[in-house]
Each structure stands twice: as structure tokens, then as C-alpha cells.
């Protein structure tokens, strides 16, 4: 077991910090508004390939600056994924606690729903809901939150069940603590490590889900934009303007790759049990 993180892990963390800075301060870097069109400079290649100097990464089909588009897409993709991850983690953990607290038919029913969701690829559930309820930003964020909640629910339930029989939990109950107090103050800190690991593993998957749906034209809708949507938009211009699709793709890849490397490292560090089970 290594005590110091490897070069690759540090690199992954640095990349993520850089991405985060660009997302937060991105509007400072871009000289153009996301929506400003320059119809004389449509589908111009990046500056380093002979395009106009003022568009370092090129322009899209209506002459919008790719840098500005990418920053806007990045902000949307990251915030949707972040919201989804948080909703899923909180909701799932809560359901897990409820299942473990009430036991009986409540637990049975909740766990049946958990099993149901785990038995289908989530994109299928997402597409069904999008088709029937119609696409809206609210529904889309809720969908991202529904992704992966079942993993948290299983995790939280398992931990509560095993913790409830521990002496410390019984002591807290015997001292007259409210069940809520037991869960929030005493059990939650014990699940925290496992939950954080799960968050780092779910986050890249939600990014992939959001970008896939937006790529298919079924996620984030114009005038809003996301990395997946830009990529999908650029598909029709692959032969003339490959940069429209390639930049957002590279960005998505870099984010998911760094996040999974970091997530794996975190898991090995925080949760040695998982590591021994894995290999």
C-alpha cells in the first residue's frame, strides 16, 4: 500500500483543478460572447492551423467562437453533473437509511425498486421519461439525480444494518438519542468515506450520461449548450470542421479519465476493503 499518491494521480488532480478554474473563471478567458455570431468567419479552423488570430480554437457553423462555446458547455455539463451527483447521493442515502430504519415491508419495497433500477441500463429509463414527460431542464436535472441513487441506498442501508448491532450505536440509543441523531451524527460519519468514493465514481458516469443524451439531441437543448450538445452539433461538419466535435470530446475524455483515476486512487486509500476484494 502506497503512502504517497503516484504521479498519474497528482496529474489527474491538477487537470481537474485546471478544468474547474476554467469553468469558474472561463468568461474571463473568452474574448467573445457565447452567442455572438461572426458570419464572415464561419467554420474557421483554429488559429494554429491558419485560422483568424481572434479565434484560437476556431469557429462553428454560424461563426461563434469555439472557446466561448466550450466554456459555456463545460459550465453546463459540470453543473448538471454536480447537481445530479448531489441529488443522487442525498436521496439515495436517505432512502437507504429509511429502509434500514423501518425494516419490514418498507425495506422490502424500497429494495425492490433499487433492484429494479439496477436491472436496467439507466439510459433506457431516462429515455422513457424524456419521451413521455417531454424534455425540460428540471426533468433533465432530476434524471441525472436519479442516476446511481440505488448504489447509495444499498450502501447506506448496509452500513446502518451492520452499525446498528455495534455497541456504540446501541449505547447512543440507550442514552436516549433520537434515531435521526443516531443516523446523522453517529452513523453518517462512518459511511462518509464509502460515500465519497461512490461520489467520485458516479460523477464521471453522470458526465457521460449527460453528454450522451445531449449528443443524441435528447438532453440539453439550444439555446443552452453542453459539451455533448456541441459534439453532436459538430457531427454534420466532420469533413469540413472537425474541431467542433473534437474539442468537446477531448474535454469530456480528459474530465472522465482524470476523475476515474482519482476515484480509483481514493477508493484504494479510503476503503482498503474494496481493494482486497477487487484484486
Amino acid at each position: 500500500m502506497k503512502s504517497r499518491p503516484s504521479i498519474i494521480v497528482i496529474l489527474a488532480a491538477l487537470v481537474l483543478v485546471a478544468v474547474l478554474i476554467v469553468a469558474l473563471l472561463g468568461n474571463v478567458f473568452t474574448g467573445h460572447a457565447v452567442t455572438s455570431q461572426d458570419l464572415l468567419n464561419r467554420l474557421k479552423p483554429p488559429a494554429f492551423l491558419g485560422g483568424p488570430e481572434k479565434y484560437p480554437l476556431g469557429t462553428d457553423r454560424i461563426g461563434r467562437d469555439m472557446v466561448a462555446r466550450l466554456v459555456a458547455g463545460l459550465q453546463m455539463s459540470l453543473s448538471v453533473a454536480l447537481a445530479g451527483t448531489l441529488i443522487g447521493a442525498v436521496f439515495g442515502t436517505l432512502i437507504g437509511f429509511i429502509a434500514a430504519h423501518f425494516r419490514g415491508w418498507v425495506e422490502e419495497t424500497l429494495m425492490m425498486i433499487v433492484d429494479f433500477q439496477a436491472s436496467l441500463p439507466f439510459i433506457l429509463i431516462a429515455l422513457t421519461l424524456l419521451a413521455f414527460f417531454g424534455n425540460s431542464m428540471t426533468l433533465f436535472v432530476i434524471l441525472m439525480g436519479l442516476f446511481g441513487w440505488e448504489t447509495y441506498a444499498r450502501l447506506a442501508r448496509g452500513v446502518v444494518l451492520s452499525a446498528s448491532s455495534q455497541p456504540y450505536a446501541r449505547a447512543v440509543v440507550a442514552l436516549g438519542a433520537h434515531p435521526l441523531q443516531l443516523y446523522v451524527k453517529h452513523i453518517l460519519p462512518n459511511v462518509a468515506a464509502a460515500l465519497i468514493v461512490q461520489v467520485t465514481l458516479t460523477f464521471p458516469q453522470i458526465i457521460l450520461l449527460e453528454t450522451s443524451l445531449s449528443f443524441l439531441g435528447l438532453g440539453i437543448q439550444p439555446p443552452n449548450t453542453s459539451l455533448g450538445q456541441i459534439l453532436g452539433d459538430g457531427r454534420d461538419y466532420l469533413s469540413t470542421a472537425w474541431w467542433i466535435s473534437v474539442w468537446p470530446g477531448v474535454l469530456i475524455f480528459v474530465i472522465t479519465l482524470s476523475m476515474s483515476i482519482l476515484g480509483d486512487a481514493l477508493r484504494d486509500r479510503l476503503d482498503p476493503m474494496l481493494k482486497t476484494r477487487k484484486s
Binding site: 459534439l231 470530446g249 472522465t256
Partner: peptide
């Protein structure tokens, strides 16, 4: 980590 739609696009390219 490589999104399948991006891999597909790259291969087409």
C-alpha cells in the same frame, strides 16, 4: 473513460 460517441466520431474522422 472514452465516451463511445467520441470514439465513434474519431474513427469516422
Amino acid at each position: 473513460a472514452l465516451p463511445n460517441f467520441f470514439l465513434g466520431i474519431l474513427m469516422i474522422l
